[in-house]
Design a protein around this nucleic acid. Structure first.
Length: 305
RNA sequence: GGCGACGUACCCAAGUGGACUAAGGGAGGGGUCUGCAAAACCCCGAUUCAUCGGUUCGAAUCCGAUCGUCGCCU
């Protein structure tokens, strides 16, 4: 019998943190944060980390282990998370993967094919080429070496074209073939996936409130502080960092910054929803309709069955 | 009450007789997704221009009435 691993996905502001802590307490679990931003130290308010009190209640992992200047990635997450899962299971506890970064969770469950790290020089060269001669040219190149990949990647999607080309150059094999070699934790563990959801208008209202709370808690000061140090591409893409930076640069008022942050957080929630909806293995729980308590009991029943 | 301006999608808005079977942007919705993913990229939103009637081969565009909004005057 394979050991169990539980994943709790859901859009931002749906209430994952609190729910996961209650579930973890109930089943003797430890939380692994599947969140690309909570990994960063000193980005407490922007990334809406669990509070110190919450973290004391249940062990949390993959929070506060990188400086904002360091890059993070789905692969890095998958590597660290798999190791943690082994550890937690060895302690006879249940790993709870909790977060809103869809790709990270997918990389962990489905795995990533073995591939060399990103090649910044190569990427820069390809990007320069695209700028000079147009994206179409790179897409054509990809079509020549990997028609299947070119077919599924939109000609304007430079990011993916470059990655596909990069994989081909670095490994000698097309990415469309490499993908088949992926091996995730699914092979070794019994992964039970759950998703938390609420009606869209309620999520949006919660976002609204949360943004106000973030500003009240000192978001501007936090951003000011982290701006002094180096910011990795990953960390600087965080919603909240961008909006406040614009305000600090005098591009718009505080009021507008708040509005922007609300809007961009709504966009984020929508994208997360789109991502998770595509995963047919997720059992959805509308925590607006049933109490957390009942939801937790339902999960307990689900995973013991 | 009088005079004037205006009335195009949820919002902003282009268009001032034929290429309008109505730009563009925002919001909103949907989607793709394998080492930057809180990223990047893609797709969808007015059979209709306040309403009714008229002029014209042809009207969002001209005329009239009505309704509405705003401004000024009394």
């Amino acid at each position: 019998m394979k050991d169990k691993v539980i994943t709790i996905a859901g859009p931002t502001a749906v209430g994952k943190t609190e729910f996961a802590i209650r579930l973890a307490k109930r089943i003797g679990g430890e939380i692994i944060s599947a969140d690309s931003m909570q990994a960063y130290r000193s980005m407490d308010i922007v990334s809406q980390k669990p509070t110190p009190k919450q973290r004391r209640a249940v062990p949390h992992h993959l929070i506060d282990m990188l400086d904002p200047g360091e890059e993070y990635s789905a692969a890095e997450f998958a590597k660290r998370a798999s190791a943690l899962i082994e550890d937690i299971i060895k302690k006879s506890r249940i790993p709870l993967i909790v977060g809103g970064s869809g790709l990270y969770i997918k990389a962990l469950i489905g795995g990533l094919f073995p591939s060399p790290k990103k090649d910044t020089d190569l990427r820069r060269r390809l990007e320069a080429e695209a700028k000079r001669f147009g994206k179409g040219r790179l897409h054509e190149k990809l079509k020549a070496v990997d028609p299947a990949a070119a077919d599924s990647i939109h000609p304007n999607d430079l990011r993916r074209i470059v990655r596909a080309l990069e994989v081909y150059h670095l490994t000698g094999f097309p990415i469309s073939q490499q993908k088949k070699k992926a091996e995730g934790i699914q092979k070794r563990f019994n992964v039970k996936r759950f998703g938390l959801i609420r009606p869209r208008d309620i999520i949006y209202k919660r976002i609204e409130e949360r943004v106000e709370e973030m500003f009240a808690a000192g978001l501007v000061k936090e951003v000011q502080r982290i701006k002094k140090g180096k910011m990795s591409i990953t960390a600087s893409a965080s919603v909240g960092y961008k909006e406040v930076s614009g305000y600090l640069a005098g591009e718009y008022s505080l009021r507008e910054a708040k509005g922007l942050l609300k809007k961009n957080t709504r966009h984020l929630a929508k994208k997360q929803l789109t991502w998770f909806r595509a995963d047919k293995d997720i059992a959805w729980i509308d925590i607006e309709k049933i109490s957390s308590k009942d939801a937790i009991e339902q999960i307990v029943k689900d995973i013991s069955g």
